[in-house]
Design a binder for these strands. Structure first.
Lengths: 142, 142
DNA sequence: ATACTTGCAAATCGTTTGCAATACC
DNA sequence: GGTATTGCAAACGATTTGCAAGTAT
């Protein structure tokens, strides 16, 4: 993995989330949150694993899954399910929605403000809204 | 399977969808579309298989999957993905959205009119909106 | 020191596939 | 009869687990 300055920021981020800054978690956090060319990544476990391996980070797939879920639980990531059997992890945890390109399987963020969601039905008794997902599924033009 | 009058309506429905009204497809269609107590079912392949078996309908799980997908392609069903690794098939194919009870894994329809979806972003070039899914994820009350 | 993490390999889950046997038109 | 459909069992991909070995505080 391309080592450079101390991971102080990432270490803080992990500690703040209650996660021990282990070698693997740091490397994955670096790949996820400090990817060259900005943020907002939508990545699967397999993809992240491939990236890690390609970057000479030794991590097992099991640890990738563990870490992704831990990051998600800690609020550092958000899981997006578009198709059965494929989970994307989104580095953008602010309120937003998604375009889903059905042909390529690609996901693209839509800023929260761009979708006006009013006149929602009241949630049933004894429940609270945990999250609202809007997925706009796209196909090739007609 | 509780046999009674001829399946004429179901036969028509299948034929109209370009599907041969085989014994299995008829039985599944009956379970899906003529369930006692109204429509709007959200069912998984495994659940439908269990229902069929419980109703003494001999169908293999493979055929359940085949049929569900054929019905979906034909527009008789709609597939809804809420969690990775679990597909629900919805007998309501009109425009609508869903409440998802994260605790029970249950899905509930929200009539299309109850959600005001305006000011949507314009889809990227060379694409058209195939469908918009709104899923309101619910947890137990605070 | 000790509790938390990791890696591995096997297990599991939902779903799909290949293909011979069978049912529909 | 000829094609579509089915069942079975094996194959599959994604994800999870159990547990021994390693690591952070």
């Amino acid at each position: 993995m391309s080592k450079d300055r101390p991971y102080s920021a990432l270490v803080q981020r992990l500690k703040g989330a209650g996660l021990r800054p282990t070698r693997q978690r740091l490397a994955l956090a670096k790949l996820l949150f400090e990817a060259p060319g900005g943020c907002d990544r939508h990545i699967t476990a397999e993809q992240l694993h491939a990236e890690a391996v390609g970057d000479s980070v030794r991590v097992s797939l099991a640890t990738i899954y563990n870490s992704l879920h831990q990051f998600t639980t800690a609020g550092l990531l958000r899981e997006v399910v578009v198709e059965s059997g494929r989970s994307y992890f989104d580095t953008n945890v602010s309120e937003h929605h998604h375009f889903y390109f059905e042909n390529s399987g690609r996901l693209q963020d839509i800023p929260g403000e761009l979708v006006q969601l009013d006149r929602l039905p009241t949630p049933p008794d004894d429940t609270r809204v945990a999250r609202i997902d809007v997925i706009i599924r796209l196909q090739d033009a007609e």
